[in-house]
Design a protein around this nucleic acid. Structure first.
Lengths: 119, 119
DNA sequence: TTTAAATTTCAATAAAATTCGAAATATGGA
DNA sequence: TCCATATTTCGAATTTTATTGAAATTTAAA
């Protein structure tokens, strides 16, 4: 990851609504959540949510897939790991710092897993 | 670390001048660098640097100490580690994700180590 | 005490981001 | 087809942020 990517990713997370959204997605795991549910959990208007999700997606931190009428959003763990690596890379001018390890969820089978989301 | 602290820290890093400054400090290690040198390396005006360093300090990501006429700034690794932990905490809804390990520099003896900084 | 160097504060300006209602767009079901 | 639901786009008001020159402040050396 390079500087500009990192700034974009950090800027995407540096806002309370968006950080809340991202944390919700991270905790939701690979299965993700439909937009409406996220808006509900985060307590923001749908149009605001859409704005923020676009920001997160553009930064590579969130992905989406269509499932019926719903759009399911998920955290992109690789991007998060890339950011963590960037922040700690070449730490301390070459001193022996423990490298950051990755967050690698087991991909719980998501095939057709969201045909009909709960209310 | 809680939500608001994390937002503050992320916001401090989510700006190219400041991220550059922070990376410079991280790579400089516990010995740190005088403000003037940082401005030089980052290529920004002293008054801009001061503004950004204040932002980083306020977020807990940088510390400073006086050394003669110089003010030496250092990265605060604990704060960075706290942020990394926050971002990955409770990842994947309790799935077995590897926890993030810390960046812990060996404190190279800094006693009186910066009485006179180089030009 | 004067002088010089390093850093910070101040003021003003310019640029960008956040919010949400209303309207537009998609998607599936009756 | 027609309707209801889910999400996105657009527009406008408000707030926040970044930038730098000039002036003020701090510290040490002459």
């Amino acid at each position: 990851m390079e500087m500009n990517e990192a700034v974009t990713a950090l800027a995407a997370l540096a806002q309370s609504s968006r950080l809340a959204i991202f944390r919700i997605l991270v905790q939701a795991g690979p299965a993700g959540l439909p937009a409406g549910r996220i808006a509900e959990l985060a307590g923001i208007a749908p149009s605001s949510l859409s704005f923020h999700l676009k920001e997160l997606s553009h930064a590579g931190l969130a992905g989406s897939r269509q499932a019926g009428r719903f759009v399911i959003y998920t955290a992109r763990y690789e991007a998060m790991n890339g950011l963590l690596d960037f922040l700690t890379s070449n730490c301390c001018g070459g001193n022996p710092c423990t490298p950051v390890s990755k967050c690698t969820p087991k991909p719980t089978r998501t095939k057709n897993a969201a045909r009909k989301e709960p209310a």
